[in-house]
Nucleic acid binder design. Structure first.
Lengths: 144, 144
DNA sequence: CTCCATCGTTGACAACCTCCACGATACCGC
DNA sequence: GCGGTATCGTGGAGGTTGTCAACGATGGAG
């Protein structure tokens, strides 16, 4: 990390991230979700035939043991269910329920609105550029 | 948070942040520091006449109660000291010691090297642009 | 002098991260 | 088939972080 802390990308990254996560968390609280749970729910909605918990962990950058609890909570809330994988009896496929889809939609809107404040100074072109850079940071260090 | 999770800036931000923080943490471990402590140390080095813990908390985006422990640990390690503020007996000015400067320099080099991997795909011009955007995200929501 | 704001500090509690271990299952070489 | 090895989900331990509410001490305004 170079000279002024204000120029350190790692620091700026984590500070901005903390800010956005905090805003999102309070917005999601009305829907009974935290960001992590919401992320899992969204991923579950995205794959029609379900996702392995290992896949979820890899996509989220989390330890698989964390995903267990998140899916537990979502399953308890009836937003997601674990189905047996017909091709591999070790894995459980996580799929969103109808209720999960509804909550995901409402929570997504709330989260979008909440993030609008911190991102207010960025135009759509810049956001796209930011997305691209953040994705490349991930791909530069992730094994896939 | 819009449709695909991979396009969600909040998610991308926290995932990239986690990645970089993890890499930095392991690099700083050799110097007996964690990122948070390192951040405080750098800020302490930046201000000649010392910083209030409240100022540190605001700059870092942390709760003041967290700063207490971080400064405690740095002080125990002899990297930083709390001086009485001649102008205000409530506050304690945090300043880096000579040892603190040395460790900051070595740790900074290690951290720089560690972050190089995840940032490998970004050129210097892009990094500058990223810095600018992250700073604007912060300033859009921070009360200062 | 009184009332109120601010500073550092402490404590409690939840969330998160990291790592290790286990049983169950799959896969590969033979 | 069979045996060794790898992978999956899960659980637990221990440390770090985030959030919030208090407290005593001090400063500042009226």
């Amino acid at each position: 990390m170079g000279q002024p802390l204000a120029d350190d990308l790692g620091f700026l990254l984590s500070r901005a991230s903390g800010l956005v996560v905090r805003a999102t968390n309070t917005a999601l609280a009305e829907h009974g979700l935290r960001v992590r749970q919401y992320s899992v729910l969204v991923l579950a909605c995205e794959s029609d035939d379900g996702s392995t918990q290992r896949e979820l962990a890899a996509a989220l950058g989390l330890d698989p043991s964390q995903v267990v609890l998140l899916v537990d909570e979502l399953e308890t809330g009836g937003l997601v269910e674990r189905r047996p994988d017909p091709a591999d009896r070790r894995t459980r496929l996580v799929v969103a329920t109808a209720a999960g889809w509804r909550v995901r939609e409402a929570a997504g809107a709330a989260a979008d609105a909440a993030v609008e404040t911190p991102l207010a100074l960025l135009g759509e072109a810049e956001r796209e550029r930011l997305r691209d850079m953040l994705t490349r940071i991930w791909s530069a260090a992730a094994p896939g």
